[in-house]
Design a binder for these strands. Sequence first.
DNA 1: TTAAGTGCAAAATCTTTGCAAATGT
DNA 2: ACATTTGCAAAGATTTTGCACTTAA
Lengths: 148, 148
Amino acid sequence: MTEQKKEKSRDFNQLLRDNGLKVTPHRLRVLDELTHKNAAVSQPDLEKTIGAEIDRVTLYRILSSFEDQGIVHKIFDLQGTATYAICNSDCRKDHHQDQHVHFICSVCNSVYCLDEVPFPYIPLPKNFTLHALALNAVGLCENCQKEE
Amino acid sequence: MTEQKKEKSRDFNQLLRDNGLKVTPHRLRVLDELTHKNAAVSQPDLEKTIGAEIDRVTLYRILSSFEDQGIVHKIFDLQGTATYAICNSDCRKDHHQDQHVHFICSVCNSVYCLDEVPFPYIPLPKNFTLHALALNAVGLCENCQKEE
DNA sequence: TTAAGTGCAAAATCTTTGCAAATGT
DNA sequence: ACATTTGCAAAGATTTTGCACTTAA
């Protein structure tokens, strides 16, 4: 195991413990998978990659526990399929800091979290009370651009 | 039938014909239902209201044909359930003008299309090509505000 | 008349639940 | 040791497909 990997899995151990979840190989595997790509990953995709190792039901339960604890947040792709991305550190159980722009590729359907893109101010009618904003940009991602 | 209703159904007849769809009582019923509320309606909601009159499979097919033809557009609510709203007139089959802010109520889960709210400009990294933007605001809608 | 739309039955997916066995702390 | 987590089987929910009957144009 490289230094980097050791570092990363130590972080994951801490992350799970901090959120009252036991450290299990399956949970580490899912966390690892979620950080591998720079895009959010859907349950079906996870099932394809790690479906042989982890039972489908367990995968559902792992993702759901992560979501409950605020370890991941859920973004829906263009087909309405849930995708999961690891929250950045300032997410709390009941206060997700997922106010960043998501980019969804219309070709490969990947969901990217664009943390660096500034989030706009939106003036809403006064009969609506705003709690959160989700901004999804749809288009061609870097990989699919090359192949056009 | 009131003048207003007559007017409305004439529009719907035209709308269906313009999009190469035959005018049937079921399709008119669905269109009527979609305009009744000022919020987007989900398939399950439609099924609750008109499920006795229309077979579930037919409802799926009607919504899917509407979507294909660009008569409605599809927005996903907080649970990832598809909701449908009638497109405004400048929608075309392959060019949806649904670049308006959607407001999703976290209590009643209603989806509103806020056509009047200005749409922001978002600067994206140059390795992403933008085709469309979807902006979903989540919070309390006018009805649920009253009941707090 | 005839192509499109509909209903019913059935299949295919997707997601959740219950419970006994295995595992982490 | 004990509460959690996991796998398997099964139930439930959602969506799609095939085919014969009906209807709009």
